[in-house]
Design a protein around this nucleic acid. Structure first.
Length: 103
DNA sequence: CCATTGACCAGCT
DNA sequence: AAGCTGGCCAATG
């Protein structure tokens, strides 16, 4: 099956849009959920291409650090957006407050 | 068409 | 625990 950037973008778009607030997902996880296990790096391209209002800030690295260089504009923007969602960024790593209650 | 680049990841030292 | 290495695969020059 040939790779189609359109379908890939659509799948990534859907997955990212489905990430609930206060939650984050790694690029690899998004790629897998979209059906493209090895395309972690392509997710970034897809997000750049997607001009829609996607919650791209909920996509972080597998080690929970932001994908941008520390101190860069994008970094601060993402951090701010996450903070609005209730996600804190400390020591270069995202930290989600208890989003679920214990049963 | 070959070489370089990336909003990455898992494994090893 | 923290850093390095190779692998990955499409986009770009």
């Amino acid at each position: 099956m040939a790779y189609s950037a359109i379908k890939f973008d659509a799948a990534v778009c859907a997955v990212v849009a489905a990430i609930p607030p206060g939650q984050v997902m790694s690029y690899g996880a998004v790629a897998r959920a979209a059906g493209y296990p090895r395309h972690a790096r392509m997710v970034s391209k897809a997000l750049q291409r997607a001009r829609q209002a996607l919650p791209w800030h909920r996509v972080v690295r597998a080690d929970h650090s932001l994908a941008f260089a520390v101190g860069s504009e994008a970094y601060q923007v993402q951090q701010g957006l996450l903070q609005q969602e209730g996600v804190l960024v400390r020591n270069g790593k995202v930290t989600v407050p208890q989003a679920s209650n214990l049963p």
